[in-house]
Nucleic acid binder design. Structure first.
Lengths: 197, 197, 197, 197
DNA sequence: CATGAATGAGTATTCATTCAT
DNA sequence: TATGAATGAATACTCATTCAT
């Protein structure tokens, strides 16, 4: 899978930078991150970043868009493959947890680091993508309600709560060093119990 | 209540600064905030901040400590005043939402803006306080389990989920402009349904 | 005339910076000058410049405006004090030569360093001021034509030529190390001979 | 006249670059110009410039030398072809104006953009060439004095003034959008009137 | 020869912190 | 105490120059 004889995959370097940026921005936030560190982590020179992105802000912007796009596509695929709604939710959690973790991180950065109109614009784009994901989850919940498996609830709020639930899993595993499997089961049990008839 | 003839209540100016800092840090994160803006919002000179705090980091540190301390004290008082466990949870939500919102904001800042060992230290202090609050909530849940009102669940995880639940309320009211009362009822219903026998 | 006991004249530091900037910009052009060097020559810290000017471009802008303003005021005063038109021209040269040297330098910088729309704007302001000076000189020439001392010529072109003439004096003294007095007399003689009846 | 089948005239690409450089340096000065823009305007790759010139500074250096050399050769030829001295001066102006415009631009750049000893060296070379041109003009003036057509004046200063006069024409046509022919006649009339017996 | 992707030295600008008043 | 003018370390960004293809 590696490039042979110095032949590079197209866009390889850009992806290297995006991956490095994801890592650094997640750890330090936007203002706390330096282009220098992103470059070092990507293994490229500082100037190279500006070959692919017009500014630090543009890099952040493209990163968010790419991550959200990938998340939506992947989650949609997984949901369509699954059978029952309860199974769909479980799969969403188990397979989508990494995605949601990134959603959390981006959300955190965006919600606490607004400086000007341009930032609001980026925030707006994020919220649009975020709504897509909420819509995706609320679709599953609606399906469950139609099948009579779930109680009649506000599906958007329930979807929102579902993400809050995932957030709990992420926090409990990250901060408290819990085993992920245990957390998933316990938290999902509580959520499903809450929503089921 | 106002100070007369320039006579100031002790610590009044320090509190002004802390309040201003809470506001600014919440909106811009740590690196995105400037001492200048905090000073202006507090209505004091930039140098004055350094009369009460040794550095921007120290201000942030003291802010977190103060906010958490106040939160724990207030929540403990409200819980002790309430009667049944379900009522305790409802009161925790209704009365404690502002506290939790601040908890969210601080958590976001801390989790995404780590630069060095000193930051980790601050993070550690925050986590200790955070655990106090988790303990406080898990205490209520344990009480409910003993009374047979709640199912036998992992009380720490449930407490964690409870905060995730509150997070949902905050997000749905903030981002989606939902009415707070409706969100509270719907989300609390789901949580209680999930945890009850 | 010096400030006593550390008491500073108002705007003193801003003027220090403007003087240093005049010197550096004249020698190196806009792009060739560094804020660092201007700061050092002004004997202030780099950051101090940004206390008085919002950007390097703003410093340049304010410098041009200030220099042109001073030049126009001073030249107008000298002309009004003089008697005959030929005397006026001589005085304009002798007393105004330093001003014109600065006019030359600024003009050179402006005419060769245009990068964007903002630059065109600055250039426009300069041209307005430049026209004021042309108008001032052409006024003297018109006066001379009315008195019958000068031939009927295109007064604006003649004024333009007068500045070209001064430029010659400046170049011949600066580059060829000529004595200023000799250059003034010789060149002025040629100009007056050319314009007189 | 076009190259056929990719076969290029020797030095053709080098000339393309020199022409592009002349244009860009004239518009933006030395520090304001980028190698990138020069390459684009020349229709070659950025790296190609370094095939013909060792550095940006070297390109500038060679450009000045080439322009001055061409100017001197061409002006000498035109002067030798003309008859009377007054006619020589007129021809110098009419035919040499484009050359003098470039002289002006290069002079402006050189006089305002000195950074180090190396620059002084380039400036020195320019001054030598400049003196050749002054000598060329002062030769014509001397000729006129010998013929009794011109007054006895400092021929070097007069030559200097002649270039200042041309500068006026260039400025009045460039900045004030005057018709070139009118400016030439008016300014030349003043100069000749000034120098003639 | 020709190219342009990659690079890092160099610069404008910001902002936490100090200190004279 | 309280202040804000002054500062320079830190950082985003540019661009001359190199070098693999």
């Amino acid at each position: 899978m590696e490039d042979r004889m110095g032949q590079e995959l197209p866009g390889k370097k850009k992806n290297l930078i995006l991956e490095a940026a994801a890592e650094v921005f997640a750890r330090r936030g936007f203002h706390g991150s330096t282009v220098e560190e992103i470059a070092q982590r990507a293994g490229v020179g500082k100037g190279t970043i500006y070959e692919y992105f017009s500014s630090k802000k543009d890099l952040f912007h493209q990163l968010i868009t790419a991550v959200m796009e990938e998340m939506i596509t992947d989650l949609r695929k997984r949901i369509d493959q699954a059978g029952e709604v309860q199974e769909k939710l479980r799969i969403l959690v188990e397979e989508g947890l990494n995605h949601f973790q990134r959603l959390e991180q981006i959300s955190k950065i965006l919600m606490t680091e607004v400086k000007n109109a341009r930032d609001e614009e980026i925030k707006e784009i994020f919220l649009q993508k975020h709504e897509s994901i909420i819509g995706l989850i609320s679709g599953v919940i609606e399906e469950g309600m139609k099948e009579g498996r779930f109680r009649q609830v506000d599906k958007l709020l329930a979807a929102q709560l579902f993400i809050g639930t995932l957030s709990s899993i992420i926090v409990s595993t990250t901060i408290y060093n819990r085993e992920r499997k245990t957390s998933i089961n316990a938290v999902l049990d509580l959520f499903l119990h809450g929503i089921s008839t």
